[in-house]
Design a protein around this nucleic acid. Structure first.
Length: 187
DNA sequence: CCTCAGTAGTGCC
DNA sequence: GGCACTACTGAGG
């Protein structure tokens, strides 16, 4: 993996707990959650094993502020460029995830169908878990086909919070809009 | 409820 | 290349 890049990161509290925001060449490359600094650092190190890590820095401060604000009130699209490294398969999954509207969910099967690999259901789940940028690539909107929340890399509790929050927000925004819920991909 | 096989991408050896 | 992982799923008991 070409993760021999220079990375700036910071750890800030948010409504979802301790939040690690990392940038590489001014692009967001990681958004992790955790209960403590230790686990976040560990996750960062694990993801970018050969990168140079620097805590703080002008670049991450600037985009970090945007990300932190957007997390609490994602009213507009986040204008921070992303740096998503992954295999072709992972990229295709992450792209599909970004088409799930806030306030709705899709199943792992839905995503598998969406990317034209109907049998790669488990692999889809694995790719979701490998998503380096929580919330922005909304892997939390993928749940089991029976409706159970299934897992979440940063804890199912956070997944639930995120989903409930998005349901609530999308409800009291425009009631008129048709809001596809489960399985909106099956058409 | 529960178990089980089918199944496919990834990481490590 | 092999092998053991999974945030899965539908069928069968």
């Amino acid at each position: 993996m070409q993760n021999t890049t220079d990375i700036q990161f910071l750890i800030v509290p948010s409504s979802l707990g301790q939040t690690l925001i990392a940038t590489s060449a001014n692009k967001l490359c990681a958004l992790f959650f955790g209960d403590d600094r230790q686990s976040l650092l560990h996750a960062l190190r694990a993801r970018f094993a050969y990168a140079t890590l620097q805590e703080g820095g002008a670049e991450v401060a600037a985009s970090g502020a945007k990300v932190a604000a957007w997390l609490e009130a994602p009213v507009a699209a986040l204008d921070v460029p992303l740096d998503l490294r992954g295999t072709e398969f992972q990229q295709s999954v992450w792209n599909a995830l970004r088409e799930i509207p806030a306030g709705s969910t899709a199943s792992y099967t839905d995503i598998a169908n969406r990317i034209g690999r109907p049998k790669s259901v488990r692999a889809v789940a694995q790719a979701c878990g490998a998503n380096p940028v929580a919330v922005i690539v909304p892997c939390h909107r993928v749940i089991r086909s029976d409706g159970a929340l299934s897992g979440y890399r940063w804890g199912v509790g956070r997944k639930r919070v995120l989903l409930e929050r998005e349901m609530a927000w999308s409800n009291d925004q425009d009631q008129s809009r048709v809001r596809p819920c489960q399985a909106f991909f099956n058409a």
